[in-house]
Design a protein around this nucleic acid. Structure first.
Lengths: 105, 105
DNA sequence: CACTTACGTAAGCTGATGCTTACAATCGTC
DNA sequence: GACGATTGTAAGCATCAGCTTACGTAAGTG
């Protein structure tokens, strides 16, 4: 989850994720979309996305097909959403802080 | 928005954001929550969060009070959500890719 | 006006990260 | 089995990011 967030912090990787969001693509074809960077760089980005769980790899002969693992993105959204929803839970911490304030004075 | 995502990729900054999510806190008090890092480091993290628009700063005498700007997080959630919802829009790209495939063969 | 408190910031170190240029490995084809 | 295609990977480099220490600054306090 932490890895997913870090992976998404990179614009190039977000672009890759967009490419394989709705369709499966072989590595070369993904790399072809990026004219300013080497195929090797894209390969490394794909590795990061894969270990972050954001894409899956399927081997077929000499090709490797990549596709977005939407489930991981779903988890990420849930995690960030937690910042909102579980605010109530953190009221405990607020209470503690208020107590500490009191003790300080 | 890009900056916000990068800012959130750092665990320490997420922790800070949690601290000021529901209440306003002065810089020193925020730093006190982190025993493994210097106050200076936290100050720098706060600067990052601020330029990313994730927190706001309010000066009062010698103190600076920080608080989460939930609006920015909302924008971020909307952006990530777009990965899901506007999948249809990207069908255009899929169609283009299919066309290119055809031409290749 | 000295002194303290509450902070930001400049300088420098170090490890991570994105990139390129080799090279290696695997699979299909002739 | 040689060869081209498709891909990962190792090595090296430059830049970035997080950290510390040291210093600067502005506002309260005696």
């Amino acid at each position: 989850m932490d890895a997913a967030l870090k992976a998404l912090a990179e614009p190039r990787r977000r672009e890759i994720l967009r490419l394989v969001w709705l369709r499966e693509l072989p590595a070369t074809e993904i790399a072809d979309h990026f004219t300013e960077v080497t195929r090797s760089a894209i390969s490394q980005h794909l590795a990061v996305l894969k270990t972050a769980g954001l894409v899956t790899e399927r081997r077929d002969g000499t090709r490797r097909w990549y596709r977005a693992d939407r489930n991981e993105m779903k988890k990420l959204l849930a995690f960030l959403d937690e910042f909102w929803t579980s605010g109530l839970e953190r009221l405990r911490d607020v209470a503690e802080a208020a107590q500490q304030d009191k003790e300080k004075r």
